[in-house]
């Protein structure tokens, strides 16, 4: 029996030391103070002098061509290799016509549990040489795919070359669905500069806090707690009476 207790004590000690060292090490690493080294680099004139040092020039690992930059602008050497650096194989690369940003969204809850407004904003830039007039349609769906707000269409007006314009819309009917997705479809003219252009879509999921549902849950939990407390009193009284009867 004593040996068993000793084994248990040793095992518990080893485990405790292991846990403390693991957690302590992690926390120590996490709360370690900032590095004394500043996060900046001083670049003076040319950046590559090919001295073998990585920061002071191009690395000579591998059979790559030597490169140098003079006056920060002129590039000599491996230009073609760099330009050919592959991106993503499935990309259909066309000359830029429209640049579209992502969806910026913000949720405004409402006193009506079935309402609630999602504010959606998108920015579009005309990269072509022609004036184009795209339209944007917004809609809102829940996680079941049901449409929560009617599709709202907006015209971006006539976009001059290089012009950048934002449009925003308020979509109501978020309700208590918690996770909702806003969708945007940008429809450009069918053809710009002789190039066929197809519509572009964007969508984004956002958590809209279901305050009414959370309130209902809180009330339900409180109700259950009160009910349990109220049913506890007769049970205790009965137990007390039973104890008195036996003595």
């Amino acid at each position: 029996m004593t040996a068993r207790r000793l084994v248990r004590a040793v095992a518990a000690g080893v485990l405790g030391v292991g846990l403390v060292s693991t957690v302590g090490g992690g926390l120590a690493a996490a709360v370690e103070g900032p590095s004394p080294f500043p996060l900046n680099v001083e670049v003076e004139g040319t950046t590559a002098t090919s001295t073998g040092g990585a920061a002071r020039g191009s690395s000579s690992s591998g059979p790559g061509p030597s490169t140098s930059v003079e006056d920060d602008t002129e590039v000599n050497g491996s230009g073609d290799a760099a330009a050919e650096s592959p991106e993503f194989e499935e990309d259909d690369t066309i000359d830029g016509i429209l640049a579209v940003g992502g969806l910026r969204m913000s949720y405004r809850p409402s006193g009506n549990p079935f309402a609630g407004v999602m504010h959606v904003q998108v920015t579009v830039q005309n990269l072509s040489d022609e004036v184009i007039e795209p339209t944007v349609a917004f809609s809102l769906t829940n996680w079941l795919g049901m449409q929560l707000a009617e599709s709202r269409e907006r015209s971006l007006g006539k976009l001059a070359p290089d012009e950048l314009r934002s449009t925003e819309v308020d979509l109501s009917g978020v309700g208590q669905w918690a996770f909702v997705a806003a969708h945007m479809t940008l429809t450009p003219p069918e053809e710009v500069g002789g190039v066929e252009v197809s519509p572009v879509t964007r969508d984004r999921w956002v958590l809209a806090t279901p305050w009414f549902l959370l309130g209902l849950v809180a009330v339900a939990i409180g109700g259950v707690a009160v009910w349990r407390y109220s049913t506890r009193v007769p049970a205790v009284a009965a137990a007390g009476a039973a104890a008195g009867a036996t003595t």
């Binding site: 590559a48 073998g52 920061a55 000579s60």
Partner: peptide
């Protein structure tokens, strides 16, 4: 930060020691 202050931060796929 340490590498930047020492001038050894990588600028290629190799380290300062190649």
């Amino acid at each position: 930060r340490e590498q930047l202050s020492e001038g050894t931060a990588p600028v290629s796929e190799g380290t300062f020691e190649d």
